[in-house]
Simulated scan of single mutants.
Amino acid sequence: MTERRCGPWLACALVLLLAAPAVWAQAPGGAAPAGALPLVIGSGPGGASYSVPIQTLLFFTALSFLPAVLLMMTGFTRIVIVLSLLRQAIGTQQAPPNQVVVGLSLFLTMFVMGPTLDRVYQEAYVPYTANEITFEQAAQRAEVPMRGFMLKQTRQSDFALFARLAKLEPNVTAETAPLRVLVPAFVTSELKSAFQIGFMIFIPFLIIDMVVSSVLMSLGMMMLSPVLVALPFKLMLFVLADGWNLLIGSLAASFAT
């Protein structure tokens, strides 16, 4: 999670914040120019304390990184890809709609990530709100359960690929590697797992398409679309087999915890 602070926008904001006291120090008495917004309202042993507007700016800048964290460091990627492939396998273009697919993926991700998020809350957020630890210490504590979750889903071959590209030392393992190496390795493994599951989903629906196409050709109905005829059979098969229960249960169980 500490990797998020390295984003370009936040980096620019931090550079401006660090440069501002030096500029103001050139003014008489070290005060801010007339009409300027005060960035630093005080300093002490713990460092500078920024004003409320600047804290708000930093807060909303950090919020812009949340979608990337959700996509790249949780099981959301695997779930949303599998559900999208299911929709294509059945042949329904807009059913369920994108909002339903994304919403279901989000809540299923929260369910899968529940134990990990509970650890982050108890070990990092609660002590930080109680002023027992600093923000940097809270970020380090929050990184531990997230790293543990990603390590369980990451294939060794994928990690070795990015470790080689990053030119890490041979003694660096997945447990000690920086997040800039672990996160892309985790995402690559998630993509591979998602397409493997999608392949298994496609097989029964592909068989139905082949059977319907063969029957229509044998009957000489060349002008009738096999997709239109196969769709109700696919829906019937999926409903009779309790497909949603099987698929969502298998997805949740596919994450190593």
Score class of each variant (00 low, 15 high):
residue 153 Q to N: 04
residue 161 L to F: 09
residue 150 M to V: 09
residue 149 F to H: 04
residue 123 E to R: 07
residue 140 Q to L: 09
residue 81 I to L: 11
residue 128 Y to P: 07
residue 159 F to K: 02
residue 105 S to P: 13
residue 147 R to M: 02
residue 168 L to Q: 00
residue 144 V to R: 14
residue 107 F to Q: 12
residue 143 E to R: 02
residue 90 I to N: 12
residue 148 G to K: 13
residue 129 T to I: 09
residue 154 T to Q: 02
residue 112 V to M: 01
residue 75 G to T: 09
residue 167 K to A: 14
residue 139 A to W: 01
residue 98 N to P: 05
residue 168 L to M: 10
residue 125 Y to L: 15
residue 110 M to E: 08
residue 139 A to E: 11
residue 84 S to R: 14
residue 158 D to T: 01
residue 151 L to E: 15
residue 153 Q to T: 09
residue 103 G to H: 05
residue 80 V to F: 03
residue 143 E to V: 07
residue 117 L to A: 09
residue 182 L to W: 10
residue 146 M to A: 04
residue 170 P to Y: 11
residue 169 E to C: 05
residue 69 V to L: 14
residue 116 T to G: 07
residue 126 V to Q: 10
residue 112 V to K: 02
residue 69 V to T: 15
residue 82 V to W: 06
residue 141 R to G: 03
residue 149 F to Y: 15
residue 161 L to D: 14
residue 99 Q to W: 12
residue 123 E to Q: 15
residue 167 K to D: 14
residue 134 T to N: 06
residue 168 L to E: 01
residue 107 F to A: 13
residue 71 L to Y: 14
residue 149 F to A: 05
residue 134 T to V: 03
residue 144 V to W: 10
residue 96 P to W: 15
residue 121 Y to T: 09
residue 157 S to M: 00
residue 68 A to I: 06
residue 147 R to T: 08
residue 150 M to F: 10
residue 138 A to L: 04
residue 173 T to R: 10
residue 168 L to C: 00
residue 157 S to R: 10
residue 91 G to H: 03
residue 181 V to A: 07
residue 162 F to L: 13
residue 127 P to H: 12
residue 95 A to N: 14
residue 103 G to V: 08
residue 118 D to I: 03
residue 158 D to Y: 03
residue 93 Q to F: 13
residue 77 T to Y: 14
residue 92 T to E: 07
residue 76 F to I: 02
residue 82 V to D: 00
residue 128 Y to I: 00
residue 126 V to A: 03
residue 143 E to K: 00
residue 101 V to H: 06
residue 182 L to H: 13
residue 125 Y to H: 11
residue 151 L to I: 15
residue 110 M to D: 11
residue 98 N to T: 14
residue 166 A to H: 06
residue 87 R to I: 08
residue 163 A to V: 00
residue 174 A to E: 13
residue 106 L to G: 09
residue 162 F to N: 03
residue 178 P to T: 04
residue 179 L to C: 02
residue 112 V to Y: 10
residue 104 L to I: 06
residue 122 Q to W: 00
residue 130 A to E: 12
residue 104 L to W: 02
residue 177 A to H: 00
residue 161 L to G: 05
residue 166 A to G: 04
residue 127 P to F: 12
residue 175 E to V: 10
residue 109 T to V: 11
residue 112 V to Q: 05
residue 69 V to P: 13
residue 70 L to F: 13
residue 131 N to W: 11
residue 72 M to Q: 13
residue 87 R to F: 12
residue 183 V to H: 04
